[in-house]
Design a protein around this nucleic acid. Structure first.
Lengths: 136, 136
DNA sequence: AATAAATTTGTAATAATTACAAATGTGAAC
DNA sequence: GTTCACATTTGTAATTATTACAAATTTATT
């Protein structure tokens, strides 16, 4: 399977004109389930696309997120992280190694008087603690 | 009710030695349910404590959070926000006005094979969308 | 009152992100 | 196929939140 083709389809599905850089970033996020930072994406793509600029990566993830082709995670206090998996799931950050894991999300009931009149368009569930490797 | 007294008690309960600045920040977070940034806390306390330094506010909220006397919210991409209400609840950020509201949290079932071996010490639930005032 | 320890303060450094304008690439019209 | 308009990318400079750090101040102890 040519994963670049998949990334192109994803871009088009979300109304984004595909370019070499956009497809590369989209493909990276679809094939790397590490919830990478802009820095990581840039470092990993640079060898293949020598002219790539970090600004382009910033611009691209912003564009992708605005078109809801990817998720923006604020689970890490330092850097913003991005996720190519847009299906509903929660995230876990290990306080020791910093790695982020996907967690299944069961369900969430939100039907309280206080919520009347609010329109919820996005939900993020963040856990933190120690992962399997780090809980010594 | 002298709310400064309450803040002193909260500090002591969490093993933090009370000082003028620490009590002021703790009190501010207990009486202002706006999930303020360091900037906001600093600006509002400065008139009363003219010698106050922004570094002190940074130091203090870090200390309070480490001792779990307050919550750290990463719901806002720009600034870290702090919450003096440590009882379980979720947060909602309006995409238009940026205000953050408390939401009740019903329950959350996390009992999936994928979670085996992970130790969850903290859970944050963030919603975003449009608040009552902003949904035009 | 003197000394040691803890806390606060101000400044300077760091680091992520954004603004912006120049350069490059792409596509349509002729 | 060349020209022109428009979109995209790039690099640099600016911005901004946060941290590092050392001096100054406050607090506690003898």
């Amino acid at each position: 399977m040519n994963s670049i083709l998949n990334s192109k389809k994803r871009l088009e599905k979300h109304g984004i004109k595909p370019s070499l850089q956009r497809m590369a970033v989209m493909d990276y996020l679809m094939t790397h389930r590490t919830h990478p930072t802009v820095e990581m994406i840039f470092n990993d793509l640079s060898p293949d696309i020598p002219t790539l600029s970090k600004t382009t990566v910033y611009n691209t993830v912003k564009l992708l997120a605005e078109h809801e082709a990817i998720l923006t995670l604020n689970i890490d206090e330092k850097n913003v992280r991005y996720d190519g998996d847009i299906s509903p799931h929660a995230h876990f950050r290990c306080k020791l190694c910093g790695n982020i894991h996907d967690f299944p999300i069961e369900r969430m009931e939100i039907k309280h008087p206080e919520c009347e009149g609010f329109t919820i368009s996005e939900t993020q569930v963040y856990y933190s603690g120690f992962c399997r490797n780090c809980k010594n």
